[in-house]
Design a protein around this nucleic acid. Sequence first.
RNA 1: GCAUCGGUGCCCGAGCGGACGAAGGGAGCGGCCUGCAAAGCCGUCUAUCGCGGGUUCGAAUCCCGCCCGAUGCUCCA
Length: 487
Amino acid sequence: MIRLYDTLSRKVVELRLRTPGEVSIYVCGPTVYDVPHLGHARTALTYDVLCRYLRWRGLAVRVVSNITDVDDNIIARAAEAGSTEEQVAARFTEIYVNEMTALGVAEPDERPHATGYISEMIEFVQELLDRGVAYVIDGAGVYFDVDRYPDYGRLPHRRPDELRDSAGARVAVDERKRDPLDFALWKAAKPGEPDWESPWMSGRPGWHIECVAMSLGLLGDGFDLHGGGSDLIFPHHENERAEAEAAGHRFAGLWMHSAMVNVGGEKMAKSAGNFRTLADVLALHDPRSLRLAMLQAHYRSTMEIDESVLAGAAAGIGRLDAFARRVGAIGAVDAPARTEDTDAARGAFAEAMDNDMGTPGAVGVVFELLRKGNVALDRGETGAAAAALDTVCELGGALGLRLGAAAVHAEATLEASPAGTPSEAPAPCPSSGAGAADEGIQQRVDERQAARSARDYATADRIRAGLADDGVELEDTPTGTIWRRVR
RNA sequence: GCAUCGGUGCCCGAGCGGACGAAGGGAGCGGCCUGCAAAGCCGUCUAUCGCGGGUUCGAAUCCCGCCCGAUGCUCCA
């Protein structure tokens, strides 16, 4: 039974599916007016891991994640850059998608753009107007009438009067609104702003209606799970919920929110001067290191990211890869499909993940199995080691961690038996092989081996040092020397 | 101010009434293995679980108070 924390009920509840075996998920994507930062990475990674795990559990997952490409920030950005809103949105959408791909975040099944759903939004606003839960203010926009939705405030767990007290505290309230809490479904366009025709006035959609139209439009009423960053709980998600339900639609079955990333003890934000772009991190680190670092914290706890955290995770990735190399170096062996250790690991892994996506525990399980695999290898129990590697790869894969991304070169594996043997590592695991450019290196490795055999360690060490200068690292194993590029 | 979440070893970070004699990762140190490295293994630093009360046969886990921090109430992932 898969259980997740539901923001609405504030409880860890069973994930109930609208259709058995199929999970429908909507994740709020970015507003594309700037480059992605670590917070976007954490949110994307959280739901990427959720989907991968659900698929590993045998469920069919359909995930929709939008791109908000009409918004005040985009308009402001276009104005200051002297370009159009379309250009700004297109540029940052491309960057976002590229960086998510680099991060290893799987493409959602659908990535709708808000601008592609304007007519659906207009219909939806009309539906709300027809039901009398929205009203038009001439020249300003169409507003949702919060008083007509008695459940308002349940998601953020605030009573409307509490919310009302702070509404307008920092934002000027249009006094023509019936209630300060009322929010825009449709905004009248100011001169020069992008706009669409509507039955009320030319303008553009409000933020919340965009997600309602896209989620309900693509996934249908009562889809299973709605996710996003915790900073979206209010007002965005609450307003989405109000709009959808007030229009008579059953909305999300479960609300999931991932926590924020802090830098230097504070929420990362441009205004705090601690803004870290994803590109900055990706330029310095293996994307898997960022993923591991985030996996090692629970998705609901605020986490701190700094160089030491990243470096620590990088070392962990190094161990994972080293294990794959060691096992790879022994070549093909008869590996049992399962052992006591792999069965136990699978069980513990699922147990951790089923319990509100306990990735830190799940990662712990993977590392424990890795250690057992290494012990088996040290003992010469190659079958058990290979079985452990298979499972480490499989479980790592369910978390989006691929092993052995760096090329590994080993004579032993070059001579290994044909593909398809039982011990052959599954797809995400390392494959080896030497390209033409590597022949020179292999030759030097062979020369060093010859020197070692002749006990001419001075020569052997000189060759090794030379290779190190060229960015090639060696590891002597019982089955031969393996080498890899470290830069 | 109101609300929510959190304070666990040198660092990150799980656990959330009994299997905790507190996972896992990282850093340091010692040992084993290795011609030497690398990789690996073992050990260690390494835990009065923010402070003070209480409930309980039993509390890191529940309750009360206090201190500290972050977040939300505002565009925000």
